[in-house]
Nucleic acid binder design. Structure first.
Lengths: 133, 133
DNA sequence: TCCTTGCTTAGATGAACTTCTAATCAGGAT
DNA sequence: ATCCTGATTAGAAGTTCATCTAAGCAAGGA
C-alpha cells in the first residue's frame, strides 16, 4: 500500500485481479454495445449512481471483517433506517452485495463479480491507450 | 485479441493501462468514501447509468478514427436528434467525452481520464481478492 | 441574400427515484 | 405470553429524468 500526492491510499493490482479484468467482459472500446447488453449493464451503473449507495458500498468493502452490520451502516448516515434499507435493497437486487441474517442482526458483504465486470467494461475505453501497449 | 466462450472479443491489459489503474484513485475497499468524494463520484456513474448513453460511449470508443460524427450516432438509435443531443450533453458535462465542430459536422471523442478513474474505483472492491494476491 | 442541412436549446409531459412516516416482521429477553 | 430492539415493507410527497415537439443557431451552397 502506498500513499499518493493527495494523501489517498493506493495499491498495485494483483495477478488475480488482472484475470478478472481479462475475463469475459468486452470493454467499451472493443466493439459497440448491443441494445440488450446496454439494457443489461445500465441498471448496474444506476445502482452505484447515488452518493449514499457509493458510500454504503465503500463502507462494506473497506470493513475489516468483510461484512458489516446494518446498524453500523445506518449510524454512518443522517438518514432514517428505512432509507438505508431501501438503498441496500437496490444494491442487493443489482447483485453488488449479499445479505445474511444472524440472530437479531443482518450483515452485508460485497459480491465482487459484478463490480469486476463493471470495472472491466470501463477500463480500456480509449483506443489510443489500447494501441500504445 | 481473443474471443471468449460467449463469442465476445477480449484482450489483455497493457502496462500503460495498469499505470492508470494504479494511479491516484483509491479503490472502494481502500477506505470508506467521504461524503464529498461520494457526491463528486456519483454524477459520473449517473452519466453512464443509461442504456442510450452506454451505447453512445461504446459507439464513440470503438470507432476507428477515434471520433464519431453526431449524424452517425443519431442514425444508430430510434430516437430523435434532440434526445441524442441531450445524452451527449450529459456525457460531455460529466467529462467523459469531448466535442469539436468542423464545418457542418460535430465530432465527439472519448476523454479517457474520467473513465479510467471510475474503473479504478470499482475494480479491486473486494478485500478477499486484494489479499489473496 | 436566401435556403437547406446538421445540431442544439427551450419547454412540456409522464415515468422513475429518493426520502419520509407508519406499519409489519424476526429474534431475544423478561 | 408479552415486550423491546433491529430491520424491512407499504404508501405518499416532492424531485429528477428521459423523451418529445417546436424553435433557434451555425455553416455551406444556389
Amino acid at each position: 500500500m502506498r500513499v499518493c500526492l493527495d494523501g489517498r491510499q493506493i495499491r498495485t493490482v494483483s495477478k488475480q485481479e488482472l484475470q478478472i479484468i481479462d475475463a469475459c467482459c468486452a470493454p467499451l472500446a472493443c466493439e459497440p454495445l448491443s441494445e440488450s447488453e446496454a439494457a443489461e449493464l445500465a441498471p448496474l451503473f444506476k445502482a452505484v449512481a447515488d452518493p449514499v449507495r457509493l458510500r454504503l458500498l465503500s463502507l462494506i468493502a473497506s470493513h475489516e471483517d468483510g461484512e458489516t452490520c446494518v446498524c453500523d451502516l445506518t449510524a454512518a448516515f443522517d438518514l432514517t433506517p428505512p432509507t438505508i434499507s431501501h438503498h441496500l435493497k437496490v444494491l442487493r437486487q443489482a447483485g453488488l452485495i449479499e445479505s445474511e441474517r444472524r440472530g437479531t442482526w443482518v450483515y452485508y458483504r460485497i459480491a465482487p463479480a459484478v463490480l469486476a465486470r463493471m470495472s472491466a467494461l470501463l477500463m480500456p475505453a480509449s483506443r489510443a491507450l489500447a494501441e500504445t501497449a
